[in-house]
Design a protein around this nucleic acid. Structure first.
Lengths: 142, 142
DNA sequence: CTCGATGCAAAGGTTTTGCACCAGG
DNA sequence: CCTGGTGCAAAACCTTTGCATCGAG
């Protein structure tokens, strides 16, 4: 299934008129395999080099993430401080609850915040996109 | 009133057993005058130097912010990307709604999110502290 | 006099950019 | 071919830290 997803990413790149190169293939593969592990640019970098079997420049990883984001295939989420984590866009969107002490993160369904986002939209004309930034707090242990 | 607040900050520093120096006086003054303008470390730095009439090292600003935070007098909030903004703690706490496109930020009352935070606390054992990180979204114009 | 605060400089971590070269379509 | 992708190196950005010196209490 992950390989199917990797192939879909590659195909989507091609459809966008973007070039399919060896580093990009590896990056897509690593994304497809690890997107549910809160991949950051740096862990994606590592995984991509492992997948390719040779070095890839970190700037290439960032530029590829950028290309995939602009193509709407990937997006990034900020879990408090530290690096952004990456998600495949065709996966179920969810919000993140991150503990500011230990970094523990829970995914919660969009519908859990529906009431809030609706109310804020009505009152302030704001459309909340908290799937892009996590909700920060403290988990049970902290 | 702002001068009163600056004096209160200074006094509180002294009460914490911390030393009152010229740079700290200037930083407290700048904080008191500008805390409602979404001061960042760098704009606070500028304002403090203006208040003092001579140079202050940026690391001194960070260390003073740190001291004030540990004394519970100040806290910082992250409005999406970019630097943190500072608030005086004795001012009404509020959440922030920040437009990810233009950076426009609205303050909203804590009570507007009470329902949400309560629900999340019950369901996930998480205490949301979204006063520390802003809720990101898009304003009416974007 | 003592310990905390300062300035200076350097480094930290994440991300971006300039540039010459290489390769996909 | 021609444009876009790559590696390399350097910088940007915000923040932190080591160290010698200074000055508040």
């Amino acid at each position: 299934m992950s390989d199917v997803e990797a192939a879909q990413l590659i195909e989507a790149l091609r459809a966008e008129g973007l070039r399919v190169t060896a580093p990009r293939r590896a990056i897509c593969q690593a994304l497809a395999h690890g997107h549910d592990h809160h991949l950051t640019a740096s862990t994606l970098h590592d995984a991509s080099e492992r997948a390719l079997g040779s070095a890839i420049d970190i700037s290439t990883v960032y530029r590829t993430i950028d290309a995939l984001e602009q193509a709407g295939l990937v997006h990034h989420v900020h879990l408090g401080h530290g690096p952004a984590v990456l998600h495949l866009s065709d996966h179920v969107e969810h919000h993140h609850l991150t503990c500011e002490v230990c970094g523990f993160t829970v995914d919660i369904g969009l519908e859990e915040l529906q009431g809030l986002t609706d109310a804020v939209a009505v009152r302030h004309g704001f459309t909340i996109d908290s799937a892009h930034f996590a909700l920060i707090g403290r988990c049970g242990a902290h």
